[in-house]
Design a protein around this nucleic acid. Structure first.
Lengths: 185, 185
DNA sequence: TGTCTCATGTAATCCGTTACATGATTGG
DNA sequence: CCAATCATGTAACGGATTACATGAGACA
């Protein structure tokens, strides 16, 4: 059997915080979990239908939109599912793949790869800073603030580690750029 | 259009270091790139067939096994493909998902999640130490040693960042274990 | 003899993204 | 009036894993 999907976990978890429509669900996941999780509509809508059939959520329709609400059984299921250990996903880091085969590239190309990595890490750090502000301002449900912050912190640690690696790696694998004049004795 | 596969990149790259059979290819990818890449037979064999049709590799059959060799065109293709920027993959971190919804778990379950994370990071660090030794002993092709080392170092930075995060997070979200006696004033 | 590793390949299936189809409402 | 956003859903497709099928050689 293939990997069990964890979409239901994300959906159930989000609905445990607030009732939402499918559309809002997608937004919430993108905005709040975006730095470590992702769901597309093609996953969310079928998932909601299944969860409803299983009695883990109920929906109330108004106009053209349906708001989903987690049930007591849904909360129990959520706790159960959160507990069991996820099988670890196979890693696929496209950047490291490129670095590993760096012998087939010249220094310019390698430098570009490292620059991109640095830029991405910096971008992430600034989104994390924004998230910290949001949490501090209590714009969201305070009960979950601590947990949210923990995930943000994980992202920050990872991003800072990337920056450190980029700097180290620039020094290691890039030939030192020739200084134009001959100023060593 | 969906994400372009990077299997051909990994295969072509591996063959740029050494001619190999499909089976050996899988082994090499697992052993050497294992900490940041993964390929299964179901990907490798069809990929080799395609690459051969495109003229990027050739094969010589002995007995029941075929050894694949990269061609000059294959090397050019490899360089080209290494250069273009990979679209960044959607993140899916099952651990952080569980931490985020930590309000639905009790401290024991959360502690177990952090313990698992710590253990994984430590395991990784020891495999990295082993890899460093292999590289130092020059058991592999020396030209690529620097690049390999760079990828190992990336793994180490990431693993250490995880350890730091686990410790920080234990202090933050786990209730401090009650000391049995009342020793505060 | 039986199990393990080497070796190749295909078929079923799942997971997930993207594209498509549809339409209401809001604001410039 | 037109574009953007809200809102729902399905179909097609691609990528990847897993299971299955097959068989040789080593070695215990």
């Amino acid at each position: 059997m293939a990997r069990q999907s964890q979409t239901d976990l994300a959906v159930l978890g989000a609905l445990s915080i607030q009732p939402m429509t499918g559309y809002e669900l997608r937004q919430a996941i993108t905005d709040v979990l975006g730095h470590f999780w992702h769901e597309s509509f093609g996953q969310i809508y079928p998932c909601l239908a299944t969860l409803q059939q299983l009695g883990f959520v109920t929906s109330t329709s108004v106009d053209r939109s349906s708001t989903y609400r987690i049930t007591a059984a849904g909360r129990r299921e959520l706790t159960r599912r959160l507990r069991d250990e996820p099988e670890r996903q196979q890693p696929r880091n496209a950047t490291l793949l490129r670095v590993f085969f760096g012998a087939s590239l010249d220094d310019n190309d390698l430098a570009a790869i490292l620059d991109r990595t640095e830029l991405q890490a910096r971008e992430q750090l600034s989104t994390f800073a924004a998230a910290r502000e949001q949490i501090a301002n209590g714009e969201h449900h305070s009960v979950h603030g601590h947990y949210w912050l923990a995930t943000v912190s994980a992202g920050e640690h990872a991003a800072r580690a990337q920056l450190a690696w980029v700097n180290e790696t620039r020094a290691t694998i890039l030939a030192p750029p020739k200084s134009s004049g001959k100023d060593s004795p």
